[in-house]
Amino acid sequence: MDVVAEDKNLSRLTNPGPDDQLRAILKGSSFDDYNSPLFIAWQLNSACNLGCLHCCEEAGHSMPDEMTKEQALDFCEQIAELNIPYMAISGGEPLLCPHFFDVCESIRSHNISLKIETNGEFIDEKTALKLTDLKLRSVQISLDGATAETHERLRVEGDWDKAIQACKYLVKNGGNTEIVFVPTKFNIHEVGDVIDLAYSLGSYGVYTGKIMRIGRAAKNWDILSPSAEEYEKFFDVLKEKTAAYEGKMKVYYYPYDVIEELKYRLECPSASLLVVPNGKVKLIGPLPFICGDLKKESLSQIWGNYKKAWQNPEVIEFTKKVIAEPKLLAESNNWRQI
């Protein structure tokens, strides 16, 4: 029996990007060899209480045609039937979805590993306890600043104190809590302090990487995008903090940007699907292509569509255009059926 991958960040493991080591390890098992996805990222809803300047989903209001509770639970059953090991639920703000806990309970009843991405603002002591009882892989809280001022400048209408309090409640109850930090011109200088803060809060890990030029981030790119020098310092701090917290807390960062990711994906798509709130399934976040609709097709059929879609000349041509002209990333939320 061979251990082919060990102690890798989950998203890297199930979503191997331009990582030579992981690429070598998983050689011979391309996405096409898998009978079903290894990982599903599910944007459960589009509603959100915040209006973050960088929001890749352009979240705010609910979509009129979001999946109903019954459709969502049927999807959970299909995930279990296909024996998919890993899932992440995001949004919008997933805790605003009325059937959020029903969905999580269903997924966890099949022992599927589940991460939740949240702004943390609806996690009071009682909710923290409910989340902890689900034995989640982790609850990831977005913290975009070491101070309320910085966090709330980017996270419009956000409340830094509530996000911090959410971490405290989760940690107190023994929940696996992680911090996610997205660097922009406004907050990139605070990354080191955010990591120190995460440690002092008892977090299991910190995730970060370059901001993706999609959604509202694409629209606000000129004011948000850090410079090359700022990124250089950022990665220096990350290296230093990774070493400093070794054995105490995980510091995960992905050094590539969306364009580098797309170049790699053209050659080597991941064994994962991205489901948006109305049940449509995207090829990958930064591209506008939809390869299926869970309201009309089974998950298994959509996995077949997904495999074929990466061979579709329209997808290949458009992806090459985006690589040559990153401004086209602004199209990512103008979905196109293929």
Binding site: M1, D2, V3, V4, A5, E6, D7, K8, L10, L13, G28, S29, D33, Y34, N35, S36, L38, N83, P85, Y86, N111, I112, S113, R137
Partner: peptide, 23 residues
Amino acid sequence: HTKIREEKFGTVVFDTLTEKIFI
């Protein structure tokens, strides 16, 4: 926390707790 799957290239064991994969 263990999931077992049959794939073209062998049987894959996912330890979803430690995130190890065995083939």
